[in-house]
Computed example of a mutant assay.
Amino acid sequence: MATHNTQDIRLTPWSPDDLPLLQRSNSPEMTAHVGGPEDEETLLTRQWKYVELSARPATEGRMFRVELAESGEAVGSVGYWPRVWQGEDVYETGYGILPEFQGRGLAVAAIRAAADAARDAGGRRHLHAFPSVDNTASNAVLRKAGFHLLTEVKFEYPPGHWLTSHDWCRDLTRTD
């Protein structure tokens, strides 16, 4: 499987060895805008969904471990997966950078690299993200990564938890 690189980070397809990273990302601080930490059973289910997603053809989505390019240290995750949104086949994206690595531009680099991976996979023209309107940092990341704010929407994530979210979109046919 391809590894996507930028100057500061490297994206590596999610593997069975990445459970500790997922567990570290399951903190109250990291999950404050998406309903809080998940229980262990839900987290293990998510882990295997990520592993399975990364074993499929790239057109069906991909989950990545985000690593520092220089050291290989894991700093977060990013991914994309297919969904139907407002009658259109699109990709959705999600991401998270561990707190001790935030504020360095790594999330912007990771989401740009994931958008490149989704574009390279083909099959969908648009990549959407749905952060809570209250998640100022995540909304800023998307703006800096070349996404365009479309509208405010009600969005269910995780299942059973409704958020007021922004619908951000990036046209994967554009290279800016």
Score class of each variant (00 low, 15 high):
residue 1 M to I: 07
residue 1 M to H: 09
residue 2 A to R: 12
residue 4 H to K: 11
residue 4 H to T: 14
residue 5 N to V: 12
residue 8 D to H: 15
residue 9 I to P: 12
residue 9 I to R: 05
residue 11 L to K: 08
residue 13 P to C: 03
residue 13 P to M: 08
residue 15 S to A: 14
residue 15 S to W: 10
residue 17 D to H: 13
residue 17 D to Q: 15
residue 17 D to R: 11
residue 18 D to K: 00
residue 27 S to N: 03
residue 28 P to F: 02
residue 28 P to W: 05
residue 30 M to F: 04
residue 30 M to K: 00
residue 32 A to V: 13
residue 32 A to N: 07
residue 32 A to W: 10
residue 34 V to F: 06
residue 35 G to E: 09
residue 40 E to T: 13
residue 42 T to C: 00
residue 46 R to G: 02
residue 48 W to S: 13
residue 52 E to T: 06
residue 53 L to T: 15
residue 53 L to N: 08
residue 54 S to Y: 12
residue 56 R to M: 15
residue 59 T to P: 00
residue 59 T to Y: 11
residue 60 E to G: 12
residue 64 F to T: 02
residue 70 E to R: 10
residue 70 E to I: 01
residue 73 E to H: 06
residue 73 E to G: 04
residue 74 A to L: 03
residue 74 A to E: 02
residue 75 V to L: 08
residue 77 S to A: 12
residue 77 S to V: 08
residue 77 S to C: 12
residue 81 W to A: 13
residue 83 R to G: 04
residue 85 W to P: 00
residue 87 G to Y: 04
residue 88 E to A: 14
residue 89 D to L: 07
residue 89 D to G: 01
residue 89 D to F: 06
residue 90 V to I: 13
residue 90 V to A: 13
residue 92 E to P: 00
residue 93 T to F: 01
residue 93 T to I: 06
residue 95 Y to D: 10
residue 96 G to N: 09
residue 97 I to A: 08
residue 103 G to R: 09
residue 104 R to V: 01
residue 105 G to P: 00
residue 114 A to W: 08
residue 115 A to Y: 05
residue 115 A to I: 01
residue 116 D to K: 14
residue 118 A to F: 09
residue 122 G to K: 01
residue 126 H to P: 00
residue 126 H to R: 14
residue 135 N to H: 10
residue 135 N to F: 05
residue 136 T to L: 15
residue 136 T to S: 15
residue 137 A to K: 07
residue 138 S to D: 10
residue 138 S to T: 02
residue 139 N to M: 04
residue 139 N to A: 13
residue 139 N to G: 15
residue 140 A to E: 07
residue 142 L to E: 01
residue 142 L to Q: 07
residue 145 A to L: 00
residue 146 G to T: 03
residue 146 G to P: 06
residue 147 F to N: 09
residue 153 V to Y: 03
residue 154 K to F: 06
residue 155 F to C: 04
residue 155 F to W: 11
residue 156 E to F: 09
residue 158 P to S: 00
residue 161 H to Y: 13
residue 163 L to P: 03
residue 164 T to M: 11
residue 166 H to Q: 14
residue 167 D to E: 15
residue 170 R to C: 11
residue 171 D to M: 07
residue 171 D to P: 07
residue 172 L to I: 01
residue 172 L to K: 08
residue 174 R to W: 04
residue 174 R to S: 12
residue 175 T to N: 15
residue 175 T to P: 03
residue 175 T to R: 15
residue 176 D to A: 11
